[in-house]
Design a binder for these strands. Structure first.
Lengths: 244, 244
DNA sequence: CGATATGTTGAAAAAAGTCAATGGCAGTGG
DNA sequence: CCACTGCCATTGACTTTTTTCAACATATCG
């Protein structure tokens, strides 16, 4: 898998006060006056699908808030294959390790057309010094990242359940929101990199779920699946017993 | 698997200034005067092997610094089996989510005789208000936790490599330090819960490595393996090619 | 309209799981 | 002190799941 398209489009400086994800994002607790000085330094970027936002190991000078779309965080295993360790959604922060002067720990690739805010580290550091309000939010972001990272191996990794159940869990996780029945439709290769299976296995598992009517591709855009949430939740438990 | 022994032994109030892991732990950057007020509230605890430090879901009012031994963090999969998501070593912090008034996200069980400091949340919050020095350390702890959590699925989970390679990686990770060739010896059930395999498979993989002379049980204590680090690092890469 | 990507399907091979039997060791109680 | 019991680890034979290899379909894009 190679991502050569790094095209991004500069959409202007960000206007935080009008931002749709602000309440769930990093700057939720800040006041207007804290933000007023920022418009110059925070950029609004749009990426198409499969664009590389940053590379693992590169020196990290910016962090990103996802405003729309989805971002996959990749890591390379010792034998060279890659694995997706998390998928970020609107409100999530990518590259938070920049705050520690560490190189990026993942390669970030968009999994859909995606809009982000690019925030230089110094901005966050500056705000952090001038107001303690950011502080709590930062810990919060660390926490949700960690929480996701922990859930991943226990729910999605092989060994915890047969492929069909893990596929169901993944689909449920990829929903646009907790109430929505629309889920992001990833490439088979990505699904394989999440669940630790080969594309063929992924294809077979999806076909089976499709045959059973638990997932329906949204046809106009092939960007989403419509899920039968209740049934998938049953599948996600593994062991579906017949009523007796 | 059931952990009924919750015996812990109170070893007195902690004396941070003389603590062996202080430079790697949470309070590294604090001054003597910051610490002087603490001795009353921070307790020194000793646990035997397989003692439960706290339970997933319980309300979190303390966090813990590991001083000696090892702690496994468990999570339950949707179908009830458990999975080890991380193993903490001296200098690591357990239950950091307490700072966010969240319930504990894991069940913490000692994987060896273990000594910890138990620190009430209010203490950390208090210090956090009075000095900004703790701040950076906290982010640091979040970061190492996240880093570990991310490494786990990409290196250890099934799908990334055959069992033998993953077993090698796990053994190398369980070394007492990066230079040591002694590694913590876990029960097969624990190994299974880390790698996502059954005890039988774990036993077979270990037997094979033992036959090849890559690991030797330390006999007096059955608490450690002595590793042939170089060979295991080769194994860890997977695909060992013959020189041609 | 081809050419390259990505997805699908089948059949055979390999890996891991399951089931079942056995061995070793520690702690218990006669 | 020794048999007994329970727990954990080991090993073998067999089953199931997943991978592998290969062929083919379908879509996408210039």
């Amino acid at each position: 898998m190679r991502y050569v398209k790094i095209k991004s489009q500069w959409q202007g400086h960000s206007d935080c006060s009008g931002c749709g994800v602000r309440q769930s994002a990093l700057f939720a607790d800040l006041r207007e006056e804290d933000l007023s000085s920022l418009h110059e330094t925070i950029d609004d970027l749009e990426f198409e699908r499969n664009a590389v936002m940053y590379h693992m190991g590169a020196s990290a000078d910016c962090l990103f808030t996802v405003r729309r779309g989805a971002v996959k965080l990749l890591r390379y295993t010792p034998d060279g294959t890659q694995r997706i360790v998390r998928v970020l959604r609107p409100g999530d922060v990518a590259g938070i390790e920049a705050l520690l002067q560490r190189p990026y720990q993942h390669t970030a690739v968009t999994a859909a057309p995606t809009a982000v805010c690019r925030i230089p580290v110094e901005v966050v550091e500056g705000l952090n010094r001038s107001t303690p309000r950011l502080h709590r939010r930062l810990m919060d972001k660390w926490h949700t990242a960690l929480s996701e990272a922990d859930a991943w191996p226990s729910e999605l990794a092989a060994g915890s359940a047969p492929v069909r159940a893990r596929m169901a869990r993944m689909l449920l996780r990829l929903r646009l929101s907790a109430e929505s029945d629309l889920a992001l439709r990833l490439a088979l290769e990505d699904i394989g990199a999440i669940l630790g299976i080969k594309v063929e296995t992924a294809s077979r598992a999806l076909s089976a779920l499709r045959r059973d009517g638990f997932i329906v591709p949204e046809d106009r855009e092939r960007q989403f699946y419509r899920l039968d949430v209740a049934s998938l939740e049953l599948e996600a438990m593994g062991e579906v017993r017949e009523a007796e």
